[in-house]
Nucleic acid binder design. Structure first.
Length: 255
DNA sequence: ATGGTAGTCGAACTA
């Protein structure tokens, strides 16, 4: 199974680029974040024509997640386990070939001093509770998406300058660690331990041109399936394109 | 340079 995760920063703005990328790379499963459209405006028909089943948890203007799969999807569910009526579309999952696959968009947090920041930290625990409510570390599960935190010094262009700032704050790293301690493995790190490999570059200040990036998008897998991961990579090609998303897709292959 | 750019939506918010 070839799986990809990509924060597209508006599927409307990225419609052609995303469909072209999927046609070229031909992943079996694609998890998307920040689609920024309600379900009726998601390009479901276009993906069906490419051979994908589609599940969406859409929202107008903000957030929005989706999963497209060439393999059948069952048991589709939306939202965190503690919310009956999700106020923000940040989590979607489906079972694909016996694997519970999650597409997640963790809140940005705005800044460490913002009232939104503690909510971001709590989200990690709520996500862990959700995962724990329907799977176990011994079962195959893949949690992928935009986690809005860089795990360690290898994942930030300037760890000294960025320490304590948004996306590289010790509280965020602790929250991520506690999620991982459920029994999830960062499969990109597993295969590519060297630093300087990023998935997000700020649109501002020529950050991409200067390679001032962060690695904040992950494919996390339980050991049951992480052991089947044969390769993992970041595809920065679409980040070079015209009007790109600020994130690059992450691709992982499982035997 | 507490700026800078992009998306949504048509002013101000989110990232």
């Amino acid at each position: 199974m070839k799986l990809a995760t990509w924060n597209v920063n508006s599927i409307r703005a990225r419609h052609d680029a995303v469909l072209a990328w999927i046609s070229r790379v031909e992943p079996d499963v694609v998890c998307l974040q920040e689609t920024k459209v309600e379900d009726d405006d998601f390009p479901t028909e276009e993906l069906l024509r490419l051979g994908y089943a589609v599940a969406t948890a859409g929202q107008k203007s903000y957030n929005g997640v989706a999963i497209a799969s060439r393999l059948p999807m069952t048991q589709v569910a939306i939202g965190l386990v503690d919310e009956a009526e999700p106020s923000e579309a940040r989590l979607l999952r489906a079972t694909i070939e016996g694997v519970r696959v999650y597409s997640v968009y963790v809140p940005n947090g705005k800044s460490p001093s913002s009232p939104a920041f503690p909510g971001k930290l709590r989200f990690f625990g709520r996500l862990r509770d959700t995962i724990a409510s329907e799977t176990s570390p011994g079962s195959p599960a893949i949690v992928c998406g935009d986690f809005n935190v860089a795990p360690d010094d290898r994942d930030v262009f300037d760890p000294v300058g960025q320490r304590g700032q948004l996306l590289y704050h010790p509280d965020e790293q602790r929250a991520l660690s506690e999620l991982l301690s459920f029994g999830l493995v960062d499969v990109f790190r597993l295969h590519r331990p060297e630093g300087g490999q990023f998935t997000w570059w700020d649109y501002r200040a020529g950050a991409f041109r200067r390679n001032q990036g962060f690695r904040i998008d992950f494919v996390l897998a339980t050991e049951a399936i992480a052991s089947r991961c044969t390769s993992a990579s970041i595809d920065i090609e679409p980040r070079h394109g015209e009007r790109p998303s600020d994130h690059a897709p992450v691709v992982a292959t499982f035997a």
